[in-house]
């Protein structure tokens, strides 16, 4: 199988002035892959995603998407190129209904979006039941489904998820990750996922990167990293 690079990050330096957060980070994602980024708190994982999405102004290096350098693009340009972003935390529009939240996911699209809406409701039947409720009144898991559903409305090529399981119960976590794998398999959407829960994310990822203090530390196929003794001792709860 010939792998096609969808995303290629080369030598990325990034600052929250005056502090340099990322130091020469290299990462890539092939079409159809699920790639995760793990690492301790403050390592710069969210900063990598924000860079891809054009949300960081002070930076150097290259980010190629489908072979084109997108380092100068703003978030509004990036969305149009088929990348969507589910940021960390509860990122719904709380005073708007579930349906309105989903509609807004296709904000930049002209024309009918009923087919997309139906599709989201098929994937998350729970959201169909709750469609006229205010998103802010939903449970944490349901809100995360809204955020993911909203990011799916544009039928993106690549989705960036920042800690999608944060603060959710184990069953909901599992359900969210199963959906991700499902969407990846059936629709060919690629995912770049930042996750604290290394065990789940490594086991479902094609490949993964370990980031520490803003630098590449390790990378490889998810299942291989899962067996790596260093990873086991640091991220999987100590080599007991």
């Amino acid at each position: 199988m010939v792998e096609k690079r969808l995303l290629d990050i080369r030598n990325l330096d990034s600052w929250y002035w005056p502090i340099q957060i990322l130091h020469g980070v290299n990462m890539h994602l092939n079409e159809g892959e699920i790639v995760s980024i793990i690492g301790p708190n403050g390592a710069g994982k969210s900063t990598v995603l924000k860079n891809i999405f054009g949300l960081i102004s002070k930076r150097k290096g290259h980010i190629f998407y489908k072979g084109k350098n997108i380092i100068k693009d703003k978030a509004s340009d990036i969305v149009k190129k088929g990348i969507t972003f589910v940021p960390q935390g509860r990122s719904v529009f709380p005073s708007m209904t579930v349906r309105e939240n989903l509609e807004l996911g296709a904000y930049i699209k002209k024309g009918d979006i009923e087919a997309e809406m139906k599709e989201i409701f098929r994937k998350f039947p729970r959201l169909k039941e709750r469609q006229s409720q205010k998103a802010g009144l939903l449970s944490g898991g349901e809100q995360q489904m809204v955020a993911i559903g909203r990011a799916l409305m544009l039928r993106p090529k690549l989705m960036l998820l920042d800690e999608p399981s944060l603060g959710l119960s184990p069953q909901i976590k599992k359900m969210i990750f199963e959906k991700v794998v499902d969407i990846n398999k059936n629709e060919g959407i690629s995912f770049m996922i930042v996750e604290q829960n290394a065990k789940i994310s490594l086991s479902l990822s094609d490949r993964a990167y370990v980031l520490e203090l803003g630098r590449n530390k390790l990378d490889g196929p998810g299942k291989q990293l899962l067996k790596d003794p260093k990873i086991q001792s640091i991220y999987l709860g100590g080599g007991v």
Binding site: F53, A75, S76, V79, K80, T84, F85, P87, S91, V92, F93, P94, S95, M96, L104, G105, Y107, I108, R150
Partner: peptide, 12 residues
Amino acid sequence: ADNLEVAKLIGI
């Protein structure tokens, strides 16, 4: 009004 940052993310 609900969330300015997320509004930007969806292209508003």
